[in-house]
Write a protein that binds this DNA or RNA. Structure first.
Lengths: 195, 195
DNA sequence: ACCTGAACACCGTTCAAGT
DNA sequence: ACCTGAACACCGTTCAAGT
C-alpha cells in the first residue's frame, strides 16, 4: 500500500480514502478485468462459428491469467460477496454458458461440460505451468491445448462428479487462501536441529 | 510462527533454532511429502498394468494437493534451490517419467506428454476447483477426470509448445509468488471516491 | 470534504541473557 | 548447547490534525 501510494503521488492514508482496504482495492481492479472478459465473451457470441467463439473465449481468459499475476491470484482468492464482483461474475458465467451451449450443439464441446466449468478452467493453463513459468513464460499455452483436448467430445468419459451449480459458483472463496483445507494430522516431530 | 511455537509448547525463538525461517520450515514439511509421493510412484512401477499405475499416481498426487492447502501452495511457490527439495523433485520426476514411459508404450498415454508434464498436472484439479472448493469439497475429482481425458491418445492434437526440459523443471520458482508477471500497463485512474 | 503522516496492530525475525 | 522473551522490521490500517 505504501508503494501504491507513492506511485500515485499521495500519502498512504489517502489510498484508504478511496478504497476501504487493500482487499477492496484489489477487488476493484479485478472487477474491471472480469467485466472486460465478460464483454469479450458477449462479443464472441456474434461469431458465426461456435467452435471458434468458445476457443477464443478460453484463450482470451487463459491469456489474462497468464499475463497478470494479481488477476490470477485474485481469481481464486476473492469473495463473490461484493455486489460489483457478484455482478461481473454473473455476467461472465452467463456469457460462458451461452458460448458453451452453442459449442455443445455444434458438436465442438463435450456434452457434460458447462459454462461454469469453462470459467473455472480459465486459470488452469497458468496454474499448471506455474512453477516453471519463470523459465518458460509461454509454457501455459501447452497446457491450454491439453485442456482443450480434454474438452473434445471424442475424449469424453464419465466425469463421476456433478458440475458446480450456479449457487456453488456464486458462494465461492470466502477466505483469503484457496478453499483447500489444512491437514487434520499431528504436527511432525521437530528434529533436534535442522541446521 | 507464534501459533506454531505455542502448539509445539516452546517459545517463538525456539522454532528459529530448529528452522532458520518460516519458508524453510514449510520447505521441510513439503519435502517430506514430496518424497513420500515419489516413493509411492516407485512402488507403482511394480504394478502389472501401466495404465492403472499411472492413473493411481496421478490420483494420489491430486489427492495430496486437494487435502493439504499448504502443500498445494508450496508446490508452486517453493524454490528448487534447497538440496533436499531438489533431491525429492528429481526423484519424483524420475518416477513420473518412468510411469509415463510405460503408459505411453502401452498406449494408455498420448505420445507427446512427458513425466514432467504429469508432475505439473498434479495440482491442476485442485487449482481448477479452487474458488468453489468450500462449497464443493469433492469437485476436484471432476477436473481430475477432465485432465485424464486430455491425456488419452485419442484426444491428442498438436500441443504447439515443447514440454519443459529437465532443466526448466529444476530451476522452478525462485520468488514467493508464482511466476506470473505483473502487468506492464499504467495504474487505473483513482475514482474520486469508492465508498 | 479531502489530504496528511504519526501511531498502532500484526507477524516474521533477531539476539542478549538465562539455564 | 539450547531455550527464552523482549525488541526490531515490515506492512496494512486508523485517526487526530491540517488545509
Amino acid at each position: 500500500m505504501a508503494r501504491i501510494a507513492a506511485r500515485a503521488g499521495v500519502a498512504k492514508g489517502t489510498v484508504f480514502n478511496h478504497f476501504p482496504s487493500k482487499d477492496e482495492l484489489v477487488a476493484a481492479i479485478f472487477c474491471e478485468q472480469l467485466d472486460a472478459l465478460a464483454a469479450t465473451g458477449e462479443t464472441l457470441l456474434e461469431q458465426a462459428d461456435p467452435r471458434t467463439a468458445l476457443l477464443r473465449f478460453i484463450t482470451e481468459g487463459a491469456e489474462l491469467h497468464a499475463g497478470d499475476r494479481s488477476f490470477c491470484e485474485a481469481a481464486t482468492a476473492i469473495s463473490r460477496a461484493h455486489p460489483a464482483i457478484r455482478a461481473a461474475s454473473e455476467r461472465l458465467a452467463q456469457a460462458a454458458e451461452a458460448l458453451a451451449a452453442r459449442a455443445r450443439e455444434a458438436g465442438a464441446l463435450r456434452a457434460d461440460v458447462t459454462g461454469h466449468d469453462i470459467v473455472l478452467l480459465l486459470n488452469a493453463p497458468t496454474r499448471i505451468a506455474g512453477p516453471v513459468a519463470t523459465a518458460r513464460p509461454e509454457l501455459w499455452r501447452r497446457y491450454l491445448h491439453l485442456v482443450l483436448d480434454g474438452l473434445r467430445p471424442e475424449a469424453a468419459h464419465d466425469l463421476t462428479v456433478a458440475a458446480p451449480s450456479h449457487q456453488d459458483f456464486m458462494t465461492a472463496a470466502e477466505e483469503p487462501g484457496s478453499g483447500v483445507p489444512c491437514p487434520p494430522g499431528e504436527l511432525p516431530a521437530l528434529p533436534t536441529s535442522a541446521r
